[in-house]
Design a protein around this nucleic acid. Structure first.
Lengths: 236, 236
DNA sequence: GGACTTAGTTGAACATGTTCAGGAAGGGCG
DNA sequence: CGCCCTTCCTGAACATGTTCAACTAAGTCC
């Protein structure tokens, strides 16, 4: 079985030990994601992945703890793509609203091709104990990277806002982004237009709220909100 | 196999045709929910349910399309229990904030015994295409019943508020309740105290916002928000 | 070079959700 | 009663995620 079946990275026996394993891992991941895209998540069997990749079923389990774990690779990729797609806005725009809007739309753009099957495996991410949950320990690198985008949104903007709020805002915006994503998953309007409308409608509201945060009169209300967040976050 | 195995409702052969089937259905559902509670959802096999109920595996599939569909029974029950638990507050309290707070706490109370395994099967509810999704067609009876509770919260309260908002508020509060539930699922603080704190902190804020809705100055902002909701809801 | 270690790989075996061809069994109808 | 239809029920068979004992071979150490 040494003839070339695909042009893709087939592990070459000549490669050094470490690299060889990494090659196999990538091959399995690539194959899996391709099949997920082509047939959907549930319809893709581990046997099919293994066969298509030219390895034994057990080998896939040597590199990935479970079928679900293959999805993590998808997340990592999408996260990087979001960052890249947001880059122009983050370097070009200075107004808070425009930055936020651009970043959110970039996120939707990046996800768009996967909408149909993202919904299919979204369920696995929703389980709190799942490593795929956006709040899980295993997701924390991807999560931190995602929050970093929103920190960039805030810090690179010309908007002046309450310093307390400034500290919390990136994480709150990320949470909002999770909300948008949740909405997006459920949104089956053509081209997910409702999600776009949600973004376009919500961003000005958020912008106005954020601007209001500096008003002396609203200080107590803001403190109350921040205190609530703090108290809810506390884990006891 | 005609000896009595449990004291519970075993289908009596003498019962009329229709009722007999219903009895079996109930028996299977009871058994399933009990085992879910005792062992957890994933750990309970269909074979175990069938064996425990004294029927064949196929029989369970005659009454329930899938293992997930057994959960719907759990929802229906919980919904009714929520209504019942909220009753005292809804008849006794007249202030909006107190009513809302009471209803939300009642909801958490009702769910509390199931927290550990609710999380386990929450994932199945999260899939948009699943009949268990709170937004699905199959869930609409339970959903409508739940929204009705929040309509009661609004209509039975002494609070005066913008008529436009009044129309939308029950559904918005229900959505908020879904948010609280989502938070609750992820909340593993002892006795889910964080969820309680979230409710206690958020209700006054909502109460204040709702009261503000009548201020002339805020009219444009309110209209903007309502328009956003309307536009997002539109399915095109 | 030879013994040893360990990463990498295999495929059969297992567990469990689901299906399905078929078999009772009650009740209506001639 | 005898026939038939529908409801209810059965358990073996199937599909698929996962495990595991065993094997291969690349590297390491003496």
């Amino acid at each position: 079985m040494t003839f070339v079946t695909t042009a893709a990275a087939e592990p070459s026996p000549s490669a050094p030990r470490r690299a060889r394993g990494e090659q196999t891992r990538q091959l399995i991941l690539e194959t899996a994601l391709r099949l997920f895209r082509e047939r959907g998540y549930a319809e893709t069997t581990m046997r099919a992945i293994a066969k298509e990749a030219g390895v034994a079923v057990g080998n896939a389990y040597y590199y990935f703890d479970s079928k679900e774990h293959l999805i993590q690779g998808f997340y990592d990729r999408n996260q990087a793509a979001h960052r890249a797609a947001a880059e122009p806005v983050l370097t070009g725009e200075t107004e808070f609203a425009a930055r936020l809007r651009g970043v959110l739309h970039a996120g939707v753009d990046v996800n768009e091709p996967y909408h149909s099957f993202a919904a299919t495996f979204f369920k696995t991410a929703a389980e709190p104990s799942s490593p795929l949950s956006p709040f899980s320990r295993e997701s924390s690198p991807a999560r931190d990277a995602s929050i970093a985008i929103f920190r960039d949104v805030v810090e690179g903007s010309s908007a002046k806002l309450d310093p307390e709020l400034r500290k919390e805002l990136p994480e709150l915006l990320w949470l909002g982004w999770m909300g948008v994503t949740l909405f997006w998953v459920y949104d089956n309007s053509p081209e997910q237009r409702r999600t776009r409308r949600l973004i376009d409608g919500a961003v000005p509201l958020i912008d106005r709220l954020v601007a209001l945060s500096r008003l002396r009169v609203l200080r107590p209300a803001l403190r109350q909100i921040l205190a609530l967040i703090e108290s809810v976050r506390r884990d006891d």
